[in-house]
Amino acid sequence: MKICFFGSSLVSSYWNGAATYYRGMLKQIAALGHDITFFEPDAFERQAHRDIADPDWARVVVYPATSDGWRGSLDAAARSADMLIKASGVGVFDQELEIAVAALPSRTLRIYWDVDAPATLEAMANDPSHHLRGAIPSYDTVLTYGGGDGVVSAYRAMGARDCLPIYNALDPETHFPFPPRPDFACDLSLLANRLPDREQRVEHFFLDVALELPDKSFLLGGSGWETKDTASNIRKIGHVGTGEHNAFFGSGLATLNVNRDSMARCGFSPPTRVFEAIGAGACLITDQWPGIDHFLEPDREVLVAASGAEVAGHLGALSADRAAAIANRARARVLSQHTYRHRARQFNQLFFGSSSRIEAAE
Results as ranks from 00 to 15, higher is better:
A325G: 09
L253Q: 04
A277H: 06
R357A: 15
V60N: 12
F205R: 01
N328R: 13
I85Q: 07
R345L: 10
S106Y: 10
I136N: 08
A324N: 06
L84T: 05
S217L: 03
V61H: 13
E362K: 15
S8G: 00
V209N: 03
T255F: 13
A53L: 10
K236P: 06
A277M: 09
V334P: 08
A247V: 08
G222I: 08
Q346N: 00
D116E: 14
G252A: 08
V334K: 09
P290W: 03
N246R: 09
A154L: 11
H338L: 12
R46K: 15
S88N: 07
L109D: 08
S354F: 04
A154K: 08
S129I: 03
E199N: 11
P298V: 09
F248P: 02
R235A: 14
D149I: 02
I237A: 11
G281Y: 00
K216C: 05
L32Q: 10
D261P: 00
L303E: 07
G69E: 06
L195D: 10
I99G: 00
E122A: 15
A327I: 06
R357V: 15
V258Y: 01
W70C: 10
V240H: 04
V152W: 01
A332H: 14
W57M: 03
D321M: 07
E98W: 15
F351H: 13
T339F: 08
I85K: 08
E212H: 07
R201W: 10
V258M: 06
F295I: 04
D51K: 11
G7Y: 05
H245W: 10
S8W: 07
F347E: 00
H314F: 12
D183F: 13
F93H: 15
P41D: 04
A102Q: 11
E199P: 04
V334A: 02
R329Q: 12
A157Q: 13
G238F: 07
C186V: 01
G243F: 04
S189H: 04
N16L: 00
G146C: 05
V115I: 15
N246K: 01
A78Y: 11
A103R: 11
R343Y: 07
D171I: 07
D140V: 03
N168L: 05
A48P: 05
E362P: 03
R322E: 14
S12G: 11
R50V: 09
L220T: 07
D293P: 02
D261Y: 12
C4L: 06
H342A: 09
F218N: 03
A185L: 05
S319Q: 06
A19N: 08
N246H: 06
T272C: 13
A280L: 07
Y155C: 04
E212L: 14
N259A: 06
D183L: 11
I52R: 06
P270D: 02
R133C: 09
S355L: 02
R50F: 05
G221C: 02
A119R: 15
E310P: 00
G281I: 01
A361F: 12
I285R: 13
A135M: 02
T242H: 01
G159E: 10
I111A: 05
G224I: 13
A306N: 04
F178M: 11
F206G: 00
R235M: 09
S269Q: 08
